[in-house]
């Protein structure tokens, strides 16, 4: 295990080197909230944020991503983005979400657009310092990550610990000057941070184990909660928009002024939006709000877990914060299904 200790000064130098060497994305404060953006000076970077408005998913699956360029005569050329970059300061739950996307884009028909961009990223995770209002990562096992990252930062008393993995990790640490290995006391401190975070990141208490959510949903297709909650749903898709594990997309064309060439790109889409399952001619296969609302929870708790073997909600709590009418709390939904089981459900 390669874990190093960086003093605050070494940390600052290291960030400067990263900015000089690569495109660096990190968290910055905007008024009272935090966002991921391009970092150009070390002092812009905040590692003590609570949660960002949008998840860092946007760097591996951009809100708008060019796929193809088209030229006259139906000639298409693939557009690749493989410029190396560093998202630094990704919270563990957001990193787990990215790892889930890795599995989903890689399986069956590998999505080379996603995979190349992902391969170009050296991701540095940071352990959570400040607990956000609605986080429940501690209930779903995503408060801490112990693998898969290129770098992992943990704030300790007089600086940061940096653990690195693999070739990208080696490169990350090569940019720092003469680092001391972490001491046993440092590692003990880190274990305390982890234990604390598993305990602290529970602003909502899930009363069912993540493994049990799928079965619970299988028994709850006809549960009254779907209608009840959806009555207040605006179908605005905010819950989709801020979700680190949502990856549905639409594909569109944009021609230049000559109308002879342009780009085909994908944009984030959301299953709560009314037209999501509508086909040409106007038939809507998921016309009812309740059906769309339910579909989202089934994606997170049953359908995607069936593919990747883990809950597809990482407990960031962003949907809870984003929802205008306060109906998007997954913990509330799953707890209710647990506490008030629905007998006459229909199977799905």
């Amino acid at each position: 295990m390669s874990v190093y200790k960086l003093s605050m000064e070494q940390m600052r130098d290291w960030i400067s080197r990263l900015i000089a060497e690569r495109t660096l994305y990190g968290v910055q404060q905007r008024d009272e909230r935090f966002v991921f953006g391009r970092v150009e000076r070390p002092e812009e970077l905040r590692l003590d944020y609570d949660v960002t408005i949008l998840p860092p998913k946007k760097y591996v699956m951009p809100p708008r991503e060019n796929l193809l360029a088209y030229l006259p005569q139906e000639h298409y050329e693939s557009l690749w983005a493989d410029e190396p970059f560093v998202p630094l300061g990704v919270h563990p739950y957001d990193f787990v979400a990215i790892r889930q996307l890795d599995l989903l884009f890689e399986r069956d028909n590998p999505d080379e657009h996603y995979l190349r961009r992902r391969k170009a990223a050296a991701i540095v995770v940071v352990d959570v310092e400040r607990v956000s209002a609605n986080v429940f990562a501690g209930c779903v096992g995503t408060a801490v990550v112990e693998e898969g990252f290129d770098g992992l930062l943990t704030r300790v008393e007089d600086g940061y610990l940096l653990e690195v993995r693999g070739a990208k990790g080696e490169w990350l640490v090569s940019l720092a000057e003469s680092l001391a290995p972490a001491t046993r006391a440092d590692l003990r401190q880190r274990r305390e941070v982890w234990a604390n975070n598993r305990r602290r990141l529970r602003k909502h208490e899930l009363k069912v184990t993540p493994e049990r959510v799928g079965q619970l949903l299988r028994e709850s297709y006809g549960h009254p909660i779907w209608e009840e909650k959806a009555r207040q749903c605006y179908s605005c898709g905010s819950c989709n928009l801020v979700c680190p594990t949502c990856y549905c997309f639409d594909v569109r064309d944009e021609s230049d002024w000559s109308l002879r060439k342009g780009v085909r790109y994908r944009v984030w889409d959301g299953c709560l939006l009314e037209e999501f399952a509508m086909v040409a001619g106007g038939h809507n296969f998921r016309a009812a709000k309740a059906a769309r609302y339910r579909h989202r929870y089934y994606r997170k708790g049953l359908y995607v877990p069936e593919i990747i073997g883990q809950l597809a909600c990482v407990g960031c709590g962003r949907c809870i914060t984003a929802c205008t009418t306060g109906i998007a709390n997954p913990v509330e939904v799953f707890n209710r299904l647990q506490e008030e089981p629905h007998e006459q459900h229909a199977a799905c």
């Binding site: 639409d250 994908r266 889409d269 399952a277 509508m278 086909v279 296969f285 579909h295």
Partner: peptide, 19 residues
């Protein structure tokens, strides 16, 4: 069955019926 099969490769989500 007809659905909105946008990407055709099991990624975009539009054609899902249940799982």
């Amino acid at each position: 069955l007809e659905r909105r099969m946008k990407c055709g490769v099991g990624k975009c989500g539009h054609c899902q019926m249940n799982h």
